[in-house]
Design a protein around this nucleic acid. Structure first.
Lengths: 166, 166
DNA sequence: CAGTTTAAGTCAGTCTTGTTGACATTCCAA
DNA sequence: TTGGAATGTCAACAAGACTGACTTAAACTG
């Protein structure tokens, strides 16, 4: 089931047991990763989907619906429901495109930006604690493995976002 | 919003921008992480919830329902729906406990084990590719950060599982 | 032994978030 | 200019999570 001789060296970190531990670590860590924002959202009438939309609108202001749904990996219908409530509640503003009137460009309002800060402060706090505990070298490895784990198409999107942020 | 002087050194890897990149990496990578098993499950009439149950029953054969729902972080009603279909379909066997007859101990049948292998082979393949691309040192860092990101209670559960597997 | 707690399962109802299908509007190119 | 492609909206439905209330059986405890 598992062959272990890639050129003579034994790659201990590639055993099935090591891989399975990584899989479980990923599962449990993701729970922690979402726990703090989830708690905040539970109080308001929002869920994780709203958080994700708010996050990326903040990240790429003026993004179109189409662009956003590719980033989020959901159908436009699914995203639309979320966006509708956010617009109704005055957290997101949707402007008809100037050059192409089919497009809607999305922006956070002041209230939307405030919620975004609240959510990402919570999420960053946990991330910061984890990074601090593990140290810079571990963080570099963490980022490297995560990038390798992405689908090619998403990795491109991710890197474009990364570069836009500095 | 962000103070940066913990003892005089500047911790570049702890800037808000670095943290946000980590958050987005986590989001996109998790999509990749679940993509392959999801594709397999879509063909059958199962979802991610079934995968998780099968994974942990395989990992800890004879585990009780109560133990499993703590591991998965769902309610018994939610888990019960999933388990019922798996038992009906002959993938999971539920045995009344010997010492405590209130408990049900869960095991994969041969068919259940076969599906588990199919799913985890797919998931491990991606993990293996990512590990191989990033290298052993990066993998160590990856694991370290993930562990730090878990809630304390889950980290304990995770480590218990880890030790049980060698 | 009686009463309480625990483990598991069930029924009913709700919510979030995903899906398809149908449709309107707008743009663009043959 | 007309027909197809792209963008977004509305409606209906499904999966999978939740709460709350309840039952059954077994184990524990005073």
């Amino acid at each position: 089931m598992m062959s272990d001789a890639p050129g003579g060296e034994t790659l201990l970190f590639l055993t099935d047991e090591q891989l399975r531990q990584g899989i479980e670590a990923m599962f449990f860590a993701y729970r922690g990763f979402t726990a703090d924002p989830d708690r905040i959202l539970a109080g308001l009438a929002y869920g994780r989907a709203h958080h994700r939309a708010i996050h990326f609108i903040n990240r790429a202001p003026g993004t179109t619906v189409n662009n956003l749904l590719i980033l989020l990996g959901v159908t436009k219908q699914s995203l639309n429901r979320v966006l509708r409530t956010l617009v109704e509640d005055g957290l997101v503003q949707s402007k008809v495109g100037k050059s192409d009137k089919r497009e809607r460009h999305l922006y956070l309002t002041e209230a939307g930006a405030a919620l975004e800060r609240k959510l990402s402060d919570a999420q960053r706090a946990r991330m910061r604690a984890a990074y601090r505990a593990a140290g810079p070298q571990a963080v570099a490895g963490f980022r490297q493995v995560l990038e390798s784990m992405m689908d090619t198409e998403l990795r491109r999107k991710y890197q474009a976002l990364k570069e836009s942020g500095i």
